[in-house]
Amino acid sequence: MTDPTHERSIASIHDDPGGRNWEPQIAEHVSRCPSCQRTLKALQAFVDSMRSRRRQAAPPDLVARVCRTVQAEQSTAVRRRWRLTVAAIPVALILGVLVGMWIA
């Protein structure tokens, strides 16, 4: 028969190997259960190994490449905006003339 507290403890260990948010009943069970302690030790070793991978930073050439992409996109967007503005001027002039003629 499976002990429900044991099952909940194993689930808590998986969810929170640091044990920061364990209920007191879970913490008490883990402290006296060899199986839970073994699982806890294993998961802590696993998480420690995984966390050490966070040291891997993006290579400087990638960061420079991304910056160049952002700047190129910005220039394109600015050019697009100017092109729209320039294209709108003759349209506005024509509309102005037409409205002027209609009023006259």
Binding site: A57, A58, L62, V70, R81
Partner: peptide
Amino acid sequence: ETPETNARRFEREVLPHVDVAYRMAR
């Protein structure tokens, strides 16, 4: 926002997280 301010804000706020993006992509 103008494209300039958008890009500048993007560089300031999002690019610091490029390490996360890189590790995820890797």
